[in-house]
Computed example of a mutant assay.
Amino acid sequence: MFDETKPLYRFYDEVINQKKFEVLDELYAPGYVNHIAPFGLDNSVERVKSWRRSRPLRFPIGISRSITSSNTATNAS
């Protein structure tokens, strides 16, 4: 159903749902620069990791487990 090797799937499943922030090192290019970071703040992937840790997803839903047989979204955590 989902291609688990695709970066978008890995981002949502591994980073958002499983909180594996080290995966961001694999998903972001070496030398990544966040051009929309506020002036004066770190604009590296390390800052992205820090930001992601400090702002958990409000409604964590597992991608592969988000739809039940009745097509109703469920909380998979």
Rank of each mutant, 00 (worst) to 15 (best):
G62N: 10
R65I: 00
K49W: 14
L27I: 11
A37K: 07
V45H: 07
I16H: 02
K49H: 13
D25C: 05
S50T: 08
N34D: 08
F21W: 09
R55E: 13
G31P: 14
V48T: 06
I36F: 09
E22V: 02
V45N: 03
V33E: 13
A73Q: 12
A37W: 00
I67T: 02
E26N: 15
E46D: 08
L27S: 12
E22C: 01
A73E: 06
E26R: 06
G40H: 10
S64H: 13
E46R: 01
T72K: 14
A29W: 14
W51Q: 10
V48F: 08
D25H: 15
G31S: 07
K20H: 07
S64V: 04
R52K: 08
I63S: 09
K49T: 00
G62R: 15
I63N: 07
E14W: 04
F21T: 03
T72S: 10
E46I: 01
R52N: 01
T72I: 06
R53T: 10
Y12L: 11
L24W: 06
I16Y: 12
R58A: 08
E22H: 14
P38G: 02
F21Q: 05
A73V: 07
V45R: 09
I61S: 05
S66L: 08
S54A: 11
L41R: 15
V15D: 07
L57Y: 10
V23P: 04
E22R: 05
S69E: 14
L24D: 03
S66C: 11
I16N: 14
Y28T: 05
G40P: 09
A29E: 10
I36K: 15
A73L: 07
S70M: 13
F21C: 03
V45D: 01
E46S: 02
P60C: 08
L27D: 12
L41D: 15
K19Y: 15
T68M: 02
F39W: 15
E14V: 05
Q18E: 11
R65M: 02
H35A: 04
S54G: 13
V45C: 05
L41T: 14
G62M: 05
I36G: 03
V33R: 12
T72N: 11
S66G: 15
F39E: 13
K20D: 03
Y32E: 00
I16T: 06
V33Y: 01
N34S: 10
F39M: 02
P56R: 07
P30K: 11
S66F: 03
K20V: 02
Y28I: 08
E46C: 01
I36L: 13
S44Q: 05
F39P: 11
S64W: 01
N17Y: 15
P60D: 02
R47W: 03
S44V: 00
T68K: 07
V33G: 01
N17T: 11
S50N: 09
L27N: 15
V48P: 06
F21V: 04
F59Q: 13
L24K: 03
S69F: 05
L57E: 08
S64M: 12
P30V: 12
L57M: 13
V48Q: 09
